[in-house]
Design a binder for these strands. Structure first.
Lengths: 301, 301
DNA sequence: CCAGTGCGCTGCGCGGAATGCAGCACGGTG
DNA sequence: CACCGTGCTGCATTCCGCGCAGCGCACTGG
């Protein structure tokens, strides 16, 4: 959009940290860019960049402005999507950021189902830990976030929430696979494979054992749940995940058993968006679909 | 703001209903304006105006776009206000639309109190009936609405609500001024002076008497509450208003007595804004002040 | 200590985009 | 039928924004 060019340039300068660098990226000369910025600051009545010896940085006013710029672009995209919607065929784009647990089964199935009804809509899916996911919402670089145990930033607006107890995951031949009343301490008798601390499952386990005599002592700590699911097939170890990522897993020789909530409280898988933002048509409809399907999955809060 | 010029022109054309007319208003030639619009439609990929023999009119896509333009301008104003707020002194503008009951006492007092603390903030106050008030919120032509018995449009977000029983208003010498247990039917024995049907007080009275044997039979129907307050000093008639507009009125020879709620249910005076909108700093702070003061006035819901 | 580097910024001359002017076709009006 | 007001377009002009080259500055590293 032509009329937002200056704003886009400002955003680029903020990202690059230098006028010359940004000018390079946008294929104009630094002088032209410099003058645009000066003209804009003149018009606004206040500088938006601090001039540093090695470049520029946004000042607080600039931070506010850049947030506005992102909101503008996102809202324009929404308007275009609504206009496209008027003319019959639904087109559009949905950008969603999610926790790893959603990648093996749930999200692919939902996106495919949605695309079967609206082939004109395409998707961007990014896997991020819970902190990064919320950051991407604030950036307007994602429309929706489907995150396990989000960190509750102020501008994360919850659209739906489902309880997700923590499951112990092991090989189907593992002795614990058949034990009645599986407890967390039983699992800790065996080598255990844990997600890195930035993940929600780990957070819940850490909390559960904060005052316990037996600390966690992972033989493998890693940031891939797929890795962990496969690892327990090679060593008689225990891993931990939430159920939504385990659908269909027993077909691959895995067993998974819920941990009692008196040992590890259930976490919450939450669908959210940036507070007060109006989503594009496609994203809003997809969010609606997700809410329905999540509700079917676990009708409790 | 330079970069929004095209958008502003589009809005002007929409308002004027003709390119030539809008061009005149904005001091450019119609050809220049015409080409800007064509270029914009080209860029957007769809027309935004219907071409009619006597001018142009927004098509649905254009309606969406104009709403976006208004939102964009309002949000930019918010950003500027927040930036101004960074630099210490609060400056800004508050645009509020209200029911007539607020004009004699409450709103002047609140605005003066706010301006005593923040002299850099100026105000626009417009008196509108409850339907028009909500329309002005949607337009972004008002930040806040303080309305008696709003019509509950979907995008009216309630910030605060206070109960406001209906009072009978009469001359201090009127026989009913001293009657214990004043009932609505007592009032109807006398000539009565009523607000026009679009006002909340009238709406409540109409509802209360829908199935009654005695219909309303106003000797004067009018759209000025000030007129009605003064009229009852000249004829031994009864009028009806809510208490917030009557503060200080007994000093002027008026008496006012609450009607029991079994006769006329209390209405609600509501402070609201456009749903999901982030208000400029000054407006948000003023809204906060209003909430506190309304709450002091009547701590019940 | 002093070139070297990368930065923001500015004077200058040019090219293209936006403007204004005049005029076209069209449709409703009286 | 003439007449008006509309959206739209060809053409000359103007002027805004661009790239080029170069300045002064602050930091860096040999």
């Amino acid at each position: 959009m032509r009329h937002l060019l200056t704003l886009e340039l400002i955003e680029q300068v903020a990202k690059a940290g230098s006028i010359r660098q940004a000018a390079e990226n946008m294929n104009i000369t630094s002088s032209a860019l410099n003058r645009r910025i000066q003209a804009f600051e003149e018009e606004l009545g206040t500088p938006i960049f601090e001039r540093l010896p090695r470049g520029v940085r946004l000042n607080p006013a600039g931070e506010l402005l850049v947030q506005h710029i992102r909101a503008q672009r996102a809202d324009l995209a929404r308007v275009r999507s609504q206009i496209a919607d008027l003319s019959g065929v639904r087109r559009g784009h949905v950008s969603i950021v999610c926790s790893q647990a959603l990648t093996p089964f749930f999200l692919p199935a939902q996106i495919a189902a949605y695309r079967a009804r609206h082939p004109g809509v395409d998707f961007t899916v990014r896997v991020r830990d819970r902190a990064a996911a919320e950051r991407e919402l604030s950036n307007f670089s994602a429309d929706l976030a489907l995150v396990f145990e989000p960190v509750y930033m102020a501008d994360f607006e919850i659209l739906h929430s489902v309880r997700q107890p923590v499951y112990a995951v092991m090989s189907a031949e593992h002795p614990l696979a058949a034990k009645p009343d599986l407890r967390l301490r039983d699992c800790l008798d065996w080598p255990h494979v844990l997600p890195a601390p930035q993940y929600g499952v780990r957070y819940l386990l850490d909390n559960a054992l904060r005052n316990a005599s037996r600390p966690l002592d992972p033989v493998v700590e890693c940031d891939s749940f797929e890795f962990m699911r496969h690892y327990v097939l090679y060593e008689a170890a225990i891993s931990f995940q939430i159920s939504i990522g385990l659908i269909g897993a027993h077909a691959r020789g895995l067993a998974f058993r819920p941990l009692p909530e008196r040992d590890v409280p259930a976490g919450h898988l939450m669908l959210g968006q940036l507070r007060n933002r109006t989503l594009p048509v496609a994203s809003a409809k997809f969010a609606q679909l997700l809410v329905e399907e999540l509700d079917k999955l676990a009708p409790n809060a």
